[in-house]
Amino acid sequence: MTDLLKRLEREPCDSRHSLEEVLANVRFNGDGLLPAIAQQHDSGEVLMMAWMNREALEETLRTGRVYYYSRSRAKLWRKGESSGQQQHLKSASLDCDGDTLLLQVEQTGPACHTGRRSCFYLSLEADSARISSAALIDPDELYTKGS
């Protein structure tokens, strides 16, 4: 944990600090990435986890549209750019260690590339794995719509 994050532990509610200073103390991993959990702002439903680099985080904060970093494509991507299923940022919070981000979002349609509302649809139980939600949109149809 950085000295800044340690110092912020003792700060009172509603105290304000330099965004640049806080971002400089974010603990991106060795690849320059930070796990970002997207949660529906009004229901609390956890929608997905993806990776952000600093550029994705800054673009998200600047524009209010959620950007991630695609490890498979090695580039920045705006959620919904190919599916049309956008995420609009309501709030962003860094955890106490500075190594995980929680995004409160307004999700348009399904968040998952499978066409499901949430990426967390495979329930692991004592003796089996169960599909716990149906697709809202056929994945083949989802990616023909565009943004």
Results as ranks from 00 to 15, higher is better:
97 D>L: 10
113 H>L: 15
103 L>C: 05
77 W>F: 13
102 L>I: 13
95 D>I: 02
87 Q>E: 05
82 S>H: 14
87 Q>P: 07
143 Y>T: 04
96 C>T: 11
139 P>F: 14
129 A>N: 06
111 A>M: 04
145 K>V: 09
113 H>S: 09
76 L>M: 12
89 L>S: 02
84 G>S: 05
76 L>R: 08
111 A>C: 08
127 D>I: 00
90 K>P: 01
66 V>G: 01
77 W>C: 13
126 A>G: 04
143 Y>C: 07
80 G>I: 14
86 Q>H: 12
138 D>Q: 07
105 V>W: 08
91 S>Y: 09
113 H>E: 13
97 D>V: 04
71 R>Q: 11
85 Q>P: 00
75 K>S: 08
90 K>Q: 06
114 T>A: 14
70 S>H: 09
90 K>W: 05
74 A>M: 10
123 S>V: 13
127 D>T: 06
137 I>Q: 03
119 C>G: 10
106 E>C: 01
134 A>P: 01
107 Q>N: 05
74 A>C: 04
119 C>R: 13
98 G>M: 13
62 R>T: 03
137 I>G: 00
57 L>Y: 03
80 G>Q: 12
99 D>R: 02
67 Y>E: 00
67 Y>C: 00
70 S>L: 11
115 G>W: 03
128 S>K: 12
120 F>M: 10
100 T>G: 09
68 Y>K: 11
82 S>R: 15
95 D>A: 01
145 K>C: 07
121 Y>T: 07
63 T>N: 02
143 Y>L: 11
111 A>L: 01
124 L>G: 07
65 R>M: 07
116 R>E: 08
68 Y>M: 13
60 T>I: 10
130 R>E: 03
76 L>H: 03
91 S>D: 04
98 G>I: 04
57 L>D: 02
85 Q>K: 15
105 V>M: 11
110 P>S: 02
137 I>R: 01
76 L>P: 00
97 D>R: 09
70 S>Y: 11
141 E>R: 14
95 D>K: 08
125 E>M: 11
89 L>P: 02
64 G>C: 04
61 L>S: 03
76 L>I: 15
144 T>R: 14
125 E>S: 03
74 A>P: 01
142 L>S: 02
96 C>V: 04
110 P>A: 13
102 L>Y: 07
69 Y>Q: 08
100 T>I: 14
117 R>K: 11
57 L>M: 05
121 Y>F: 15
70 S>V: 11
121 Y>R: 14
122 L>C: 12
56 A>L: 08
65 R>P: 01
139 P>W: 14
88 H>Y: 12
66 V>P: 00
113 H>Q: 12
119 C>I: 09
66 V>T: 08
109 G>T: 04
137 I>E: 11
92 A>W: 06
136 L>T: 02
117 R>D: 01
103 L>Y: 02
109 G>S: 03
64 G>Q: 04
110 P>K: 03
136 L>E: 15
76 L>D: 04
90 K>G: 01
129 A>E: 14
89 L>A: 02
